[in-house]
């Protein structure tokens, strides 16, 4: 076995996807945590859907949005960008499925902040912006870290949506999960097994510190 590109593609894709989903997740968590009632429930539900829907459904929607004939796709084509079957498509797919985990973890830790701390900050004259970045986020640092780790692990495991919009192009869009599917389909079970072991160990060593860290916080 000589081609290690799925490993590097997977790591690079997951990392980029996590960074994107992380910042979107922080913004979404802040907005939803500040909402109330039915609108909050509805928005939260929509943002969580990618977590529970079959990846093929996510892939289908992404095809609708970025496909050749969609408005977004055509607009991008005019400026010379092609999303479908590119590495960027793999990043988008991974980011979409990682987003709900990151968003929910950060939102949960934002909502656990003692409300009087925020009220005190307001009466002391701190702007909402300062309160969010200097008071709330530092308190939520463990939650943010947990969200990022979970999101990274999820992005690493993304398969269905990736295959639909990024395809299986070795050296370009072939991530480890896609490589496993490809090898198993081609009856190269040894190669598939090696990739399986690799992704299991990466995921384990990514998640393991989370539990250690989570315990020490108590």
């Amino acid at each position: 076995m000589t081609d290690w590109s799925p490993l590097f593609i997977s790591l690079k894709t997951s990392l980029c996807a996590t960074v994107i989903a992380f910042f979107l997740g922080i913004v979404a968590a802040r907005l939803v945590a500040g909402m109330n009632g039915k609108s909050k429930a509805a928005v939260d539900c929509i943002l969580t859907l990618p977590l529970v829907l079959p990846p093929t459904v996510v892939g289908f929607f992404l095809l609708l949005i970025f496909g050749w004939n969609s408005p977004v796709g055509q607009l991008l084509r005019k400026v010379g960008i092609r999303i479908i079957f590119s590495w960027e498509a793999a990043v988008i797919a991974a980011a979409v499925v990682a987003f709900p985990l990151i968003y929910r973890t950060i939102r949960a830790s934002l909502e656990q902040i003692e409300p009087s701390i925020l009220d005190a900050a307001r009466t002391l004259g701190l702007s909402e912006w300062t309160i969010f970045w200097r008071v709330m986020l530092p308190i939520c640092l463990p939650g943010c870290a947990a969200g990022a780790v979970l999101g990274f692990a999820r992005a690493l495991g993304e398969f269905g949506a990736t295959l639909m919009i990024a395809g299986n192009i070795p050296g370009k869009t072939q991530t480890i999960p896609v490589a496993i599917w490809s090898a198993a389909g081609g009856n190269e079970m040894n190669i598939a097994l090696i990739w399986v072991l690799i992704i299991v160990s990466i995921s384990f060593f990514v998640l393991f510190p989370l539990n250690i860290f989570g315990k020490s916080r108590l």
């Binding site: 003692e114 009087s116 701390i117 009220d119 005190a120 900050a121 008071v135 530092p138 308190i139 640092l141």
Partner: peptide
Amino acid sequence: FQQYALFPT
């Protein structure tokens, strides 16, 4: 505030 509400970090 009752619990003083200092910024814990």
